[in-house]
Design a binder for these strands. Structure first.
Lengths: 155, 155
DNA sequence: TTAAATAGTTGTATCATACAATCAATAACT
DNA sequence: AGTTATTGATTGTATGATACAACTATTTAA
């Protein structure tokens, strides 16, 4: 196809079928998760994720915010909520009086563990009938997507 | 392994590695999408999804809510917002004076199309380097997960 | 023809998140 | 050392998404 003096070649249409399917499925997927978690009164996603992060070791909000890709203020509030529930302790940092460490408590660990198990169970139900390969693949592809997303954000 | 008179066989541990990976990746995935969309001031996910649904034909909030798996009140508000922006029109149903049809307008269609394209482009960037098979697989697996989720909710 | 069901809207509440303003402490710069 | 800039954290304010409950108007069923 010729237009002026440039050559127009169809290189694999913009709206590739797979991309279309994925886009659609992602919107559904995300919504489902958000609403499901809201309806079933479990520990909030945010609390769970923060606790999980803290299970790797104590940290201050700044570090946490970086790892979790959230605004510091958001993490600050979420952390306070966890302190309220006694799932974490807030320890002053002796080396720098501005900052604190949040450390998961025994209770918090138990809570986390229970939640984790519950989540795993549900997920396992969802994946009932999937072959081991399919499960692995799903995990790998999601991870890959996330990795790319991280890199893009890094810029 | 023998315990009392029951036989204990390890059938693939509860916390299967794949399940663990998937669980983790899902939390990251969902959060990423939520925050990314919030930060980049695009059309809200909810508006987009609703418009997309309306692009298949006019419908009232009840039907929409069923398709979108949302509460009627939620859809009602989202629909009003779209009317505000003139992306959809609200037409009384002559057969039943309680109900209405929401119909996408020309402007709404254009808006939807533009958004759609933008989303596709981003997604395509994200999937840069993926083989066609990987893309297909990702779409298929997400779709399968969603299908199962739908069925479970149907109960 | 009154009672029950239905379609929609609106009030109220919660979670998740971000941005901006602020406070207190530390570091950096003359 | 003394002032200024930077940094860690919190709090005020705002928005989006969502649900549940109360309510209105209309239709259907008894």
């Amino acid at each position: 196809m010729l237009e002026g003096n440039s050559i127009y070649i169809e290189v694999g249409r913009m709206s590739d079928e797979s991309v279309e399917l994925i886009e659609r499925q992602i919107t559904d997927f995300v919504r489902r998760i958000v609403t499901t978690e809201q309806r079933e009164g479990r520990m909030e996603r945010s609390a769970y994720i923060l606790l999980r992060q803290l299970s790797y070791g104590p940290a201050g909000v700044k570090t946490l915010a970086e790892h979790l890709h959230l605004d510091i203020s958001t993490v600050s509030r979420q952390a306070s909520a966890l302190v309220e529930k006694a799932y974490v302790e807030k320890l002053p940092n002796p080396e720098d009086k501005r900052s604190y460490f949040y450390r998961i408590t025994r209770l918090g660990s138990e809570e986390l563990e229970g939640n984790r198990r519950e989540r795993f169970e549900r997920l396992q139900e969802m994946l009932d009938g999937w072959t081991e390969e399919e499960q692995e693949m799903f995990g790998r592809l999601l991870a890959r997507y996330n990795r790319t997303a991280n890199e893009r954000l890094g810029l």
